[in-house]
Nucleic acid binder design. Structure first.
Length: 693
DNA sequence: TTCGGTAGCGCC
DNA sequence: AAAGGGCGCTACCGAA
């Protein structure tokens, strides 16, 4: 077994960042490393081709252990595609996946884990490197202004923030070389020492983690988790397509609108004798003074640190209380608009920073189309959810007036299929606790009066009189649709809000000031619900007791992995050391839903790989996005629309393939003992427009 | 100029 | 004592 570690000139491999240092260490402690000079003018490494062949041959024959191999494989693949195509994932171990499994809420960076599991402090190595980088950056800035030092805003490093010395690890040595420093100058070796130490500690850390995993009976779960890495790698490598034309259209529309709203705000303030400088983001001092001192609006909520809040709920409250057609109300409404529009515009600016022109099979740019490659992190959360960054693909808005999904969609010659689990986070606790009324709801989604809607069931319970009146008016078949429409922005919306609060574990208070009761607009609502659905509440209490005793809660067991136990998720504690009671059931549900999703991703990827065997890249089937309970697939476009699949004309479109993936996803329900039907949507041209099939 | 904390807001 | 879970990104602001 060897460990392998790569140092790069940045994290934006799709924008020219490259490895310049690769180090390996075998289990005897023998190091072998490759360091390449980086041309400071274009930041490209100068690599003898035999080095890559040597590294590749080591990868081909050894068992491997890496800290976050997805990063290294992406980096090496940017030099030579064979690293991506041939990477032996089945022979690869990951200390990051292992670290999360052993303690989901601790930091999983190598330095932290080495300190925790080996008792060794690597921080001095990192500090020396940081110091050398910062000093050499300052020197290069003054002596060699044409050298390309990492900088926020540079178009070849869209991820760069203000703090970016890690993108210039190559620089101390390049300067030592340029300035002909003596051989014993530390800048020659400071990066090498750091990188080599990483490789050495990785190979030492691995057996310790593995032994602990086995001792705790988690080995099957570890192996199951490792199947995710090639799936994440492929998803990230393929990326998501964006239309420039549609993004430009939206940007212009929203930017203009934002300017108009902002102008209204400034003018109203001026009319009241206040020179407002409007923030582009949430708030600034000028706005604070205006809202709380000039308009004298009351403080309705406090931020985490105890300051007066001015978030969207507070603004919404102001809006509804202020007199119609008053200056104040108009101000608040314009402020809400301007904030939302500015947020949308800044998201879109992020997309244009990160996107890369989309290439066709002939290598030419497909006019108007670009691709994003968000970075996916399967260990990014304290549960089993993944995180996504640079840019985040998990917060693409579908709100009216903020519909960024419009910009995304299949490129010419492609079609998208999206699939999401129906109500999976409601189903899991309902089935686990055997809460019959909820189960009935899920089992009979086509029956009146609720037609499978949890919100309507609760609406009926909380607003019985409104419901009964409506039944008399329109009958039991239509009562749901009627109430949903009639009370869309009042009681029905409140019910939804309250239900989410309850789902996420809001704590009830007797005086009606609990989060859920406030959301429901009905004191005692949550108590009423608890009294009706006692089994689910009992499950909640069991989870809290379990977490108090063990410090963690487990996901529901997956019978194909380990029938007797699930993935342990360490629960957050309060400042007083107790388990936060809102956490355990939440983690159990969220974690189990993601275990389901993980199985769905592995199963569907196996199917896609089978379909893709022997196909040209342009004709392949890809998984491209995962948003917690939703997967999006990118297919070659069929010449026939899926709606034409009827009667004897089956398989005229890709519908049968989509159905196959849908079925593979739903199969995960058997593994956890919860029925999990999956919705299917076809997207002809845009992510925001889909046909349900 | 750099950097970290805070607030706000998008998603599920 | 006090309790709605999980994220990432941007703007703002003040301190170093």
């Amino acid at each position: 077994m060897i460990s392998l570690d790569t140092e790069t000139t940045g994290v934006d491999m799709h924008h020219g960042a490259k490895p310049f240092f690769v180090t390996t260490c075998n289990d005897q402690g023998d190091l072998e490393f490759f360091e390449w000079h980086v041309n400071p003018i274009n930041r490209q490494p100068e690599i003898p081709s035999e080095d890559l062949n040597t590294i590749l041959s080591m990868v081909r024959v050894n068992n491997l252990v890496l800290q976050n191999p997805k990063f290294d494989v992406s980096a090496l693949a940017s030099l030579d595609a064979r690293f991506g195509d041939e990477w032996p994932w089945e022979r690869t171990d990951d200390t990051l996946i292992a670290g999360h499994l052993l303690h989901s809420s601790m930091p999983h960076d190598l330095t932290s884990m080495v300190l925790h599991y080996l008792g060794e402090d690597m921080q001095p190595f990192e500090n020396r490197l940081q110091d050398a980088c910062n000093k050499s950056r300052a020197m290069a800035r003054s002596k060699f202004p044409e050298w390309r030092i990492a900088k926020k805003g540079a178009d070849d490093m869209p991820s760069a923030k203000e703090k970016n010395w890690k993108y210039d690890l190559w620089l101390p040595r390049a300067l030592a070389r340029e300035l002909k420093y003596p051989d014993d100058h530390p800048w020659w070796t400071v990066c090498q020492e750091y990188a080599n130490r990483d490789a050495e500690t990785t190979i030492c850390l691995w057996p310790v983690l593995l032994a602990e995993i086995k001792r705790r009976g988690l080995y099957e779960i570890y192996r199951d988790r490792m199947r995710l890495l090639p799936v994440a790698y492929k998803m990230q490598a393929v990326g998501v397509s964006v239309s420039r034309e549609r993004l430009t259209e939206l940007t212009e529309e929203y930017a203009e609108s934002a300017v108009r709203s902002g102008r209204v705000c400034v003018n109203i303030a001026k009319g009241l004798g206040y020179e407002l400088s409007l923030p582009k983001g949430g708030r600034n001092k000028s706005l604070n003074t205006f809202i709380f001192d000039t308009l004298n609006l009351p403080v309705l909520k406090y931020t985490d640190t105890g300051n007066a809040s001015m978030n969207k709920d507070v603004l919404s409250e102001y809006y509804h209380v202020l007199p119609t057609r008053s200056k104040e109300r108009m101000f608040i409404q314009s402020l809400r608009n301007s904030r939302q529009l500015n947020t949308a515009v800044s998201y879109m600016e992020g997309y244009t920073r990160f996107w890369v022109p989309m290439k066709g099979a002939d290598g030419r740019h497909i006019d108007d189309w670009y691709r994003l490659h968000p970075s996916l992190n399967p260990t990014g959360t304290d549960t089993l959810r993944w995180s996504s960054s640079n840019p985040n693909e998990q917060n693409i808005s579908k709100k009216e007036g903020f519909n960024l999904r419009y910009c995304f969609g299949p490129a010419p010659g492609r079609e998208w299929w999206s699939m999401d689990a129906k109500n999976i986070e409601l189903r899991i606790p309902a089935y686990e606790s055997r809460e019959e009324e909820f189960i009935a709801l899920f089992e009979r989604p086509d029956e009146p009066p609720y037609y499978g809607s949890n919100h309507l069931l609760i609406f009926h319970l909380l607003w019985t009189d409104l419901w009964e009146t409506a039944v008399k008016e329109v009958g039991p078949d239509k009562v749901g649709v009627h109430c949903k429409k009639r009370y869309a922005s009042s009681n029905y919306q409140w019910t939804k809000n309250g239900n989410f609060a309850v789902q996420y574990g809001a704590i009830d208070r007797e005086d009606g000031t609990g989060t859920a009761d406030v959301a429901y607009h009905q004191p005692g609502a949550q108590a009423k619900i608890k009294a009706r659905f006692t089994k689910q509440e009992a499950l909640n209490q069991w989870c809290i007791r379990y977490a108090e005793k063990h410090g963690y809660i487990e996901t529901l067991p997956d019978k194909t992995v380990n029938a007797s136990r699930g993935y342990p998720l360490v629960c957050t504690r309060t400042e007083y050391g107790r388990i936060k009671p809102t956490v355990p059931l939440n983690y159990r549900v969220q974690g189990t839903a993601m275990q389901w999703m993980n199985k769905a991703m592995v199963r569907t990827q196996d199917q896609l790989d089978e379909w893709n065997r022997g196909r040209n890249l342009a004709d392949q089937f890809h998984g491209i996005m995962q948003v917690h309970d939703e997967l999006v697939f990118d297919f070659p476009k069929s010449s026939r629309h899926p709606m034409l699949d009827r009667g004897i004309f089956t398989r005229v479109s890709n519908l049968w393939r989509a159905r196959r993936l849908q079925q593979l996803m739903a199969q995960g329900g058997d593994d956890i003992g919860v029925p999990t039907p999956v919705n299917l949507e076809y997207h002809d041209s845009s992510y925001d427009q889909g046909i349900t099939l």
